[in-house]
Amino acid sequence: MSQCSSFFDFIAHARPELMPAARWGTDGPKTWSADEVQRTILPQLTHGTTVLAIKYDEGVVIAGDRRATEGYQVASRRMEKVFKTDSHSAVAIAGVAGPCVEMAKLFAVELEHYEKLDGVPLSCEGKANRLGHMVKANFPMVMQGLVVIPLFVGFDVKQNTGRIFKYDVTGGKYEETDYHAVGSGGKDARVTVKERFRKNVSESETITLALQALLSAAEEDVGTGGPDVFRGIYPTLKLVDAQGVRDVEESQVASLCEPLARARLERE
């Protein structure tokens, strides 16, 4: 029996057909020239979506829009892109829906599995590294266009601070000091946050900033959905702090979106 506490490594050994990379089929990964990657893969890296994370005085807000697209079609209006992965961490994922949701689910099992086997949860850095390994293992699928780019947020109980980690498709892990956004609307969201960000502001101000950034992204990017007041669909936000992970109530998001959208109209 293996001595490792990783669920990912366990299924790789015991049930390889359950691994995300089982999508390769039996022929193994297709090889691409650098030029093909440039033309075919890179444009897909920013598959429709905007997800972002912003630090506040006591933790981190992590948020995402709800739209999923298939080419020029809206595939889903209620997609959930922010996932609680254990008591003190969450991921938001941009990329192709299927592998994204699968990675978030597998990552949550990975963390729980470790915690149960070893009796203690992984450190914040350890969780971020583990996710990096999973993104790296996904690389052959990136070559087939199945891109998964997560944004990891955790509360580091030892350092008593919230932390944000971003990844590239090769599994590279980079820590961000204040905020980050990924997805097709990521750049618009980042610019909005950049203009207004201040360190150590309150939770409620940061929630508002996150919503403003998502509104900007939804206005500029077709792949990002804005608040849908008719259907009552709003972006999802989670707060990650010393108390753990909790949802921002949909009613609160709804009541915040209204004045933000109105203020925008009035400026125009």
Partner: peptide, 8 residues
């Protein structure tokens, strides 16, 4: 391992 695998 049995439980996590089955749940997954």
């Amino acid at each position: 391992q049995h439980a996590d695998l089955k749940g997954f």
